[in-house]
Simulated assay, not measured.
Amino acid sequence: MSNLKNEVIRAVRLGDSDTGRIVGQSLKKLRELAGLTQKELAARLDISRSSISNIENIGDVHIHSLQRYVAALGATLRIEATFPATEQLANQFNLAFDPDTPDENQLVFPIFGDDIFRRQRDVVLSIRPQYTSKIMEGKKTVELRRRFPISAPRGTVAYIYSTSPERAMVGRAEIADVVKLPIEQIWKKFGKSASIKRSDFYAYFDGLKEGFVLQFTNPQLFPRSLSLSELRDRFDFEPPQSFLYATPILRKALHDEFPNVSY
């Protein structure tokens, strides 16, 4: 836990009862993981050791004090509201905001901090190898999704993760537009540019009346692929079933390591 600087720490774990004690235990655990004694943390905060003890034993602490405690560990406090990504909630919250989504099944909104309601970040798309190669060659100009934020800003970057057996991040493309249409209209308008067989198309959208079309532009192959093992080791990355939002550290690494690829 020596590299807590600028990291987000989920310090508060709320239960149905005795919330203060749970908060205090979480803070104590974080302090211990950071390798600090109560006396050392008290010195950083310019308060008494007994005050630290009271916070950790009782957990009755104001948000401002909680923020200072976590900041003294070298971390950043973040409080979030997590919702299931149902169509109704997605429309209600309007995904033009950045919900820091771990996967396509959750909407996570920060309710405390400096990053409330940011614009959407770029996304990572899991795509089969036979399709990723066509995207990089410019032959496949659209990607189909059962679910996707239709309000994604134009120019959003889609990082292409090629699934098994390749299992690597291979390139990027810009999302020129996101269209939501009835399934039959998608096939008529985009079936050819999606480079998919009719049987596979209808199997993919089975059970849905409408689907999403991501229109790609400016596909660019990375000079080297990033394997899944490298992605896990460096970025704690796990490939999504459909899509996820790219973390800032992943985006920065791709930008720094591939300077000849325009962003």
Rank of each mutant, 00 (worst) to 15 (best):
L41S: 06
E184H: 00
Q215P: 03
V179R: 02
E184C: 05
P239D: 07
L89V: 01
K180T: 08
A81P: 00
G74H: 08
L181N: 08
F117N: 14
P182V: 00
S193F: 04
L226E: 11
H255K: 15
D115P: 02
F235A: 03
V157I: 15
D256V: 10
L77I: 05
L27H: 09
R31H: 00
P248I: 02
R49I: 07
A43C: 02
S2N: 04
A176M: 07
L30K: 07
F258P: 05
P223Q: 13
K28W: 09
L250M: 13
Q241Y: 04
F205M: 09
L144Y: 07
L30P: 03
T163H: 10
K139Y: 02
D236A: 11
H62W: 13
D177A: 07
P153D: 11
F205Q: 04
F205E: 08
N57C: 07
F83G: 09
E143A: 02
T132D: 05
I196E: 03
F109G: 06
D100S: 14
Q92R: 11
K28F: 04
S48H: 03
E104C: 10
K134M: 12
D100P: 03
Q92W: 12
S242Q: 01
I116W: 02
P240F: 04
S162I: 06
D256Y: 08
E7Q: 00
A42H: 01
D114F: 09
E137P: 02
S65G: 11
V261C: 13
L14T: 01
A96S: 13
K140G: 06
Y69V: 02
P165E: 11
V179K: 00
R232I: 12
Q241K: 00
S227G: 04
D103C: 10
V157Q: 14
P153K: 12
